[in-house]
Computed example of a mutant assay.
Amino acid sequence: MLNNELIDEYIKESGKYQIKLLDKDKYSIGSSTLLHYRDRYFIITCSHCLKYVEEPLDVIVPIVRSNDVVRAFNLRNYQSDDGIDVASFEISFVDFSNTQNEKGYISDVIFDETDPLQNINGLIVINATNYIGFEREEDGEIISVSFTTLPYFSEIIDYDNDYYIVSASPLGISQDGLEYNVETFAGMSGSPAFKITETHGLQWLGILTNGDPDSGKIWVLNYQFIIEYLNSHYFND
């Protein structure tokens, strides 16, 4: 059982790798994961999040600076693979330099190298923003959006066909530490998922691709297939 101090630590740590996706009209279309791999920087999400986006490079990925100034990443080199439900953008080193104090980038230091079957019954945290935690307001030509992240703590109950299956409950913990009802996981696809360990802190397992409180399950794609996808699409390996 995690104590409140550890919960606070894991909420803060897992949240820095997650970022929201908006369409050009500033409506939420999903979540995504920030990744540093082979000296390049990527935003990883699910391809189904972009299913109804006409031009993927029009997607807005906002970040709030420490001085409350909001900027968006300059997205480039869009790639996708519907077969594994993964899509990605590359971001420049300049963008990384301008955002590294507000966000973090998953690197191979925290890749989980355990046999997936050995992770069954382990604790997991998925940091995301669902549609319940997203608000959009229009005032003339000004559009304001706000997010409330949902650090979702649960247990891995199985591993099947490259996916971790996680126990899902309608009860979640918000970023202020309060419990609240999770009516939907919509908007959480693409969020990073981490195994919680006593000795090594958070270890990256993959990204959330699907989930339903009514079914009692969340599916997390193993990160190893994301790495294979990047090697194929960006490095020609």
Rank of each mutant, 00 (worst) to 15 (best):
M1R: 08
E5C: 00
E5F: 03
E13A: 07
S14C: 02
S14D: 06
S14V: 01
G15F: 02
K16M: 01
Y17E: 03
Y17W: 07
Q18S: 11
Q18N: 10
D23N: 10
K24G: 01
K26L: 07
K26Y: 14
S31W: 03
S32I: 00
T33P: 09
L34F: 12
L35A: 04
L35F: 09
H36R: 10
R40I: 02
R40V: 01
Y41C: 00
S47W: 11
C49D: 13
E54F: 13
E55T: 06
E55H: 14
L57Q: 07
D58I: 00
V59K: 06
V59F: 06
V59G: 05
P62L: 00
I63G: 05
R65Y: 13
R65D: 09
D68Q: 07
D68T: 08
V69S: 06
V70G: 06
V70I: 08
R71V: 00
N74Y: 13
Y78L: 00
Q79E: 14
Q79V: 07
S80V: 00
D81K: 01
D82W: 12
V86F: 11
F89I: 03
F89V: 02
F96T: 02
S97W: 11
N98T: 01
N98E: 06
Q100K: 11
N101R: 00
K103E: 09
Y105E: 08
D108M: 02
V109P: 05
F111K: 14
F111N: 13
D112Q: 13
D115V: 03
D115P: 03
P116A: 03
P116Q: 08
L117W: 11
Q118K: 14
G122L: 03
L123A: 15
V125H: 15
I126K: 05
N127F: 08
T129G: 03
Y131F: 12
I132T: 13
G133H: 13
G133S: 07
F134A: 01
F134N: 06
E137W: 15
E137V: 08
E137C: 04
E138Y: 13
G140A: 12
E141H: 15
I142N: 15
V145P: 04
S146D: 11
S146R: 15
F147V: 01
F147Y: 15
T149Y: 14
E155K: 09
I157T: 05
D158W: 07
D158G: 02
D160T: 04
D160S: 08
N161V: 05
N161W: 09
D162N: 14
Y163N: 15
Y163I: 04
Y164P: 01
I165T: 15
V166H: 13
V166C: 03
V166F: 11
V166Y: 15
A168E: 12
S169F: 05
P170C: 00
L171N: 13
G177S: 03
N181K: 14
E183S: 12
F185S: 07
M188C: 08
S189D: 09
G190P: 10
G190H: 10
S191K: 08
S191G: 06
E198F: 09
H200W: 14
G201L: 02
Q203F: 04
W204Y: 11
W204N: 03
W204C: 00
W204Q: 04
L205G: 11
G206P: 11
G211E: 07
D212R: 08
D214R: 05
K217Y: 14
K217L: 08
L221D: 15
N222C: 10
Q224T: 08
F225E: 11
I226N: 10
I226T: 10
I226D: 12
I227A: 09
D237E: 13
